[in-house]
Design a protein around this nucleic acid. Structure first.
Lengths: 108, 108
DNA sequence: CCATTGTGCAAACATGTGGTTGCAAATATA
DNA sequence: TATATTTGCAACCACATGTTTGCACAATGG
């Protein structure tokens, strides 16, 4: 429980990914979020804690309600990690282009 | 162990992410991979099994050696999942642009 | 043929994870 | 003030996870 949180571990759970998608559009309270799932409010609350710990989600108190909001910029970290592979699949695509071009030339 | 594998769960483990990065450049044998980490070959082997189960990695037998290779196309699934959020952070950026434009006009 | 090398698989273990139940604190409402 | 609502936190539980150790099997080399 006291483990240092990590964004990749946070999105590993399908329920948490669903929560992320849900509150991406608009901030929601734990109760409202829990209504969308087949678990208890406390379970959702735990997920929100994990998401908050790795700063994927922020809270906004409004009276006795707490609205949870997706920190969209944090999602870019995943995108950033993907960049190294994006370079590779781009290169492979270029290589394929080259192969196709060579084949075309040979066909002439 | 017989759990249905999921790409998001696969990349949740930091060692597995490191393995992915390592073999992204070129295919490697389990022994060669294990040399890069502070664990046993068997632990790496288990990680490779998980990565194979969710089709992030493929094997290529060569004599008694088995080369593990990253299935780069599978990585695009993460990219695809990110797309929904990319739209949002693009929109927010556009909205910011609009705000800035309005401020500029008012300054005139 | 026999020893070595590269590998996967199974068992055992400590720890992490997601879930539930129960309770306490704070805010809103009568 | 008394009650209801919204929420977080702690304890507990079954199960998943990552690691190690030990073993089996196939391919290579003497």
């Amino acid at each position: 429980m006291d483990t240092r949180r990590d964004i990749f571990q946070a999105i590993a759970d399908p329920t948490r990914r669903a929560i992320i998608t849900l509150i991406a559009i608009q901030a929601m309270t734990p109760n409202a979020i829990a209504e969308h799932f087949d678990t208890t409010r406390q379970a959702v609350s735990k997920h929100l804690r994990i998401l908050t710990e790795c700063e994927l989600v922020t809270q906004k108190q409004q009276g006795r309600e707490i609205y949870y909001q997706l920190e969209i910029n944090k999602m870019k970290e995943i995108d950033k990690w993907l960049n190294q592979f994006r370079k590779i699949w781009q290169t492979r695509f270029d290589q394929l282009d080259e192969v196709l071009a060579t084949m075309k030339n040979k066909a002439k």
